[in-house]
C-alpha cells in the first residue's frame, strides 16, 4: 500500500515538474509560438478544414443545412461511382497517363541529365541548360495554347506540313488515340529540362576521386556512367520516384483539363477532371467529394507504399 502511494506521489511530482518545465519552455519561446500562430492557422483553415469537409462524401449535401447538418447516406456515393459507367474509365486513364509519363518523361529526365554531364565544354553545357530549363517558366495555359495552335487542323504548322507532304490533315486533339501521346509530349516539354537540375546537383556531389580511380583502372565513359554516376544518384532517383508516384493522382488535372474535350474523354478523362466536372460544373458536391476522397486515399497508400519500398530496396526514403 505505502509503496504504491509513494509511487503515485512521485509521478504526480514528476508531472508537476514536467508541467513546470513545459511552462518555462513556452514562456522562453513565446515569440516562436507567436510566429507559429499565423502559420498554424493557415494549415488549420486551408488544409484541415477541407479534411473536416470530407464527411460530405458520406452525406447528401444540402446548401441550406450546411456540411454538418446534411443527411448521412453511408456509402451511397461510392457505390454509385463504382457501379457507374465512368469509374473504370477514369481510373484506367489516370493510371495510363501516369505510366506514360513515368516511362517516357521520368526516364528521359535522367538520361538527359547524364548526357548533360558528358558535355565537356562548360560554356556549351550552361548554354544548353539555360535553354532546356526555359519551358518550366511557361505556364500550363500557355503550353496548352501552343499545343492547340500548333496542332490546329485549319492552320496549325503540323497540319500545314502534313498537307505539304501530300498527307491528309489530322485533327489531333479530337482523336482519342492521340491524346495520351500529346499529353505526355507537352508534359515532357515542360518538365524534362528543369527536372535535370536535381540530378545535375546530385552528380556534382559525387566524389571526383572515384572517377579518377576508375580512369586509372581503364574504365571507359559508359562504364563510369554505369558503375559510378548511376549508383551515385540512385538515392536521388528513388526519392524523385516516390514523390512522382505520390503526386501521380493529383498532378495531371490541370494539363488534361486544358487539352481534352468531350470527344476525347474516352482516353483523356482522369479522376481529377471527373471530380472537377461533377463537383464544380454539375454541382454534385457530395458525389464529387466521394470520388475525390477515393483519389486521396489511393494517393496516400501510394506515397506510404512507395516510401516503405524504397526503405527496403535502398535503405533510404523520404522520411
Amino acid at each position: 500500500m505505502s509503496k504504491t502511494r509513494t509511487l503515485r506521489r512521485l509521478t504526480s511530482e514528476e508531472k508537476k515538474l514536467k508541467r513546470y518545465k513545459l511552462w518555462q519552455g513556452i514562456k522562453r519561446d513565446k515569440l516562436l509560438y507567436i510566429m507559429l500562430i499565423p502559420f498554424v492557422l493557415y494549415y488549420i483553415l486551408f488544409f484541415y478544414m477541407p479534411m473536416f469537409g470530407l464527411q460530405l462524401a458520406f452525406k447528401d449535401y444540402s446548401p441550406l443545412r450546411g456540411i454538418i447538418g446534411s443527411q448521412w447516406v453511408g456509402m451511397k456515393h461510392f457505390v454509385n461511382f463504382f457501379t457507374g459507367p465512368y469509374a473504370w474509365r477514369v481510373i484506367r486513364n489516370t493510371f495510363m497517363i501516369n505510366i506514360y509519363d513515368l516511362l517516357i518523361n521520368f526516364t528521359a529526365t535522367i538520361v538527359v541529365a547524364l548526357m548533360l554531364n558528358e558535355v565537356i565544354n562548360k560554356h556549351i553545357r550552361s548554354a544548353i541548360q539555360t535553354v532546356i530549363y526555359m519551358p518550366h517558366f511557361v505556364s500550363t495555359v500557355v503550353a496548352a495554347g501552343m499545343v492547340v495552335s500548333l496542332l490546329s487542323p485549319s492552320s496549325g504548322i503540323i497540319n500545314t506540313i502534313l498537307v505539304k507532304l501530300g498527307m491528309e490533315k489530322i485533327y489531333f486533339l479530337a482523336e482519342p488515340k492521340y491524346f495520351r501521346g500529346i499529353y505526355t509530349a507537352m508534359n515532357g516539354w515542360q518538365s524534362i529540362g528543369f527536372g535535370t537540375i536535381i540530378y545535375t546537383s546530385a552528380i556534382c556531389a559525387i566524389d571526383d576521386s572515384l572517377y579518377e580511380a576508375a580512369s586509372i583502372d581503364g574504365a571507359g565513359r559508359l562504364q563510369k556512367i554505369i558503375h559510378i554516376t548511376l549508383p551515385g544518384i540512385a538515392m536521388t532517383i528513388t526519392v524523385m520516384l516516390i514523390m512522382k508516384i505520390g503526386h501521380m493522382l493529383s498532378s495531371s488535372a490541370e494539363s488534361v483539363l486544358l487539352l481534352y474535350q468531350p470527344i476525347t474523354y474516352e482516353t483523356a478523362d482522369v479522376i481529377n477532371t471527373y471530380v472537377y466536372r461533377e463537383g464544380l460544373e454539375s454541382a454534385n458536391y457530395s458525389y464529387s467529394t466521394a470520388v475525390g476522397l477515393f483519389n486521396g486515399i489511393v494517393s496516400f497508400i501510394l506515397v506510404i507504399g512507395a516510401n516503405k519500398l524504397s526503405h527496403k530496396v535502398n535503405n533510404a526514403g523520404l522520411w
Binding site: P50, V275, S288
Partner: peptide
C-alpha cells in the same frame, strides 16, 4: 501525404 481534394477545398 493526404489531400482532402477539390470539392471540400472549394467549400472551405
Amino acid at each position: 501525404w493526404f489531400n482532402a481534394g477539390m470539392m471540400p477545398t472549394y467549400l472551405t
